[in-house]
Design a protein around this nucleic acid. Structure first.
Lengths: 335, 335
DNA sequence: CTACTTTGTTGGAGCGCTCCAATCCTGGTC
DNA sequence: GACCAGGATTGGAGCGCTCCAACAAAGTAG
């Protein structure tokens, strides 16, 4: 398992170690003759550069550290796709980590990422305190996805949750709904703007808003609906704007268990357009965040900073869009 | 962004660089007095060790490279959980990568992981050719999850797909089903043993097997059912053993669209027990792989090799279990 | 034919750390 | 008070690489 070094390659090719280094970095100032010899020697020896030694010596690195808050949620996978595509185009690799949405573990994960001295750091939906982010931002260029910050040293990429819930409400109103309830995401990330957007849209349409507290899980969604059923009796709303897709699916289950049909009796809109929503069995009307684009913008922002092309912070606020599927329709009853 | 080095800490604490190194590595042979001084200096300077320099100098590393074939599939997230928990216990960190199920990209991802000289490598459901795996195994201890290998230098962790499908068939037979169809996963990983297990179980029960070719997606599952409907007309099977959960959900949608009820008309069993299956709206009877355990065993096997405690390959073949939910029941009709 | 570029190549220093042999202290012992 | 064992501390070499100044070789111009 003792892998060959540049020295070995150099010896075999009959050149100096520095020349091998030049070849490995694709320098143009190497004669074709020598380049071929070095490449052949490297190949014969099974030589592959040592990334650590390289970045130690050059005091730069060509990879970005990415901390994904939750590997279980495929939502982040598409952000990573965008991040990866863009980073790759610009000559960077991705090194991923996770903190499992637990602040203490995320802190460790962040420290571990930092200990590799990446060119930059992307935090996807982190739950660590702002001070930890500020600390990390002092060590490397940093971009935040799905979380905002006022620090001038960090860039952020978010979708406009306010606009998103607005789209959901507008859609329902245009179908003829008037009694629309919002099941909210509690303290979850982005729950606040979604709630605000719902309230603003209802006000804009001259309708009375109604918010039920909940969380980003399907069981919480089901629970919220059951509470709604208990509280409102037969005066159920005709439509629900759920906190996110999981929550929406829980809500739908509870509605169906109560003998109500979706969308005939109650229309439901989710948020996030997870792969779940697209399943034909679910076919959820939902708000889509341009995830790949978000990842791409995050990588771009990060690399601009890495290259020193920009020092002012960038705040991307992307426009979500509505994906209409089978869980919304005109209200068929009038309680 | 010029971070402090050991030299800086040493200067501030009034000791030598070597002593700082000892403190950082938690050596017992440092006086409490000095240790405290070093720690304080490090804290004041915001010093954090440079993982690369450390592993370059020590020629060992304390992290494991993990290539996840597909970040979109939460299945792997739980394997990573197990891997992470065990690795952490034994003093290792995880560095994650992905190749998006594309052989070329996975190759790159593997090379990139290797270039960091990790202590070991875990490949989760890789689709790269066996030769690439053999090559990687020469560079670092390697464990394969959800993929088998005959190489004596690599360890493997798999669930017993054959047993798994057998459990599904047994369950259905015990409910009274006789006409049980298997929708298979085509060339997908683990599709073959699942098919074999189905065939063996049907034979064991003296029933006639019937396999429909398909893939690991919900649209493929739906398509397979529609083909079944077309081909069999009113002679539909009373139960289906699907390739995996996604496939099962597609199958259920297609059945429902055709006016059939699940499980009243047709029972459906999935495979993998993804978080999807547990959603109350889905509530799919499925075969569970002990994922966390698989991750744990993978980490354990890897670290044993890293430590040189073992050179013989280990082949873990875990016993899956059946999770009965709402998509299976006794057959209510006799076509 | 000498002086000056240009192009290709090289040795050496050094990145931040670990590891080892050598050194420096203590306190205990006779 | 000299001696020693043992622990605590240190300088130096070196990990595999990059970078730079220096240099050799081959043109190019005067």
């Amino acid at each position: 398992m003792d892998r060959p070094t540049m020295e070995d390659v150099a010896a075999r090719a009959g050149v100096s170690r520095a020349l091998v280094s030049l070849v490995m970095r694709g320098s143009p100032k190497v004669s074709e003759h020598r380049r071929a010899a070095v490449l052949r020697a490297a190949d014969e020896l099974g030589y592959a550069p040592h990334a650590m030694a390289r970045s130690l010596a050059s005091r730069t690195s060509h990879f970005l550290g990415v901390m994904v808050s939750d590997l279980h949620n495929a939502f982040w996978a598409e952000i990573v796709d965008g991040l990866d595509a863009c980073a790759r185009d610009l000559g960077f690799e991705l090194v991923i980590n996770t903190g499992g949405r637990r602040p203490a573990r995320e802190r460790q994960a962040l420290a571990s990422l930092l200990s590799f001295r990446p060119a930059g750091i992307a935090l996807l939906g982190p739950v660590v305190p702002a001070t930890a982010i500020a600390g990390a931002a002092m060590q490397a260029p940093l971009v935040l996805v799905s979380r905002s910050s006022r620090l001038s040293s960090v860039d952020t990429v978010n979708d406009n949750g306010q606009t998103g819930s607005g789209l959901a409400v507008d859609h329902l109103v245009s179908l003829g709904h008037k009694d629309i309830v919002h099941i909210d995401g509690g303290g979850g990330s982005q729950a606040a703007p979604r709630r605000t957007g719902y309230l603003a849209a209802m006000r804009r349409h001259g309708l009375a808003p109604s918010v039920v507290g909940s969380e980003y899980t399907d069981t919480a969604g089901a629970k919220a609906v059951r509470e709604l059923l208990d509280a409102r009796g037969h005066h159920l709303p005709t439509a629900i704007v759920a906190a996110n897709d999981f929550n929406a699916i829980g809500a739908i289950s509870a509605l169906e268990e109560a003998g109500l049909r979706v969308p005939a009796d109650v229309s439901v809109v989710g948020y996030d357009n997870t792969s779940l929503a697209a399943l034909r069995h679910v076919s959820l009307t939902t708000v889509d965040q341009p995830r790949t684009e978000m990842g791409r913008l995050a990588a771009e922002a990060l690399i601009q900073r890495v290259r020193g092309e920009r020092t002012d912070p960038v705040r991307h606020l992307l426009r979500p869009s509505l994906v209409v599927r089978a869980t919304t329709g005109p209200p068929l009853r009038n309680f």
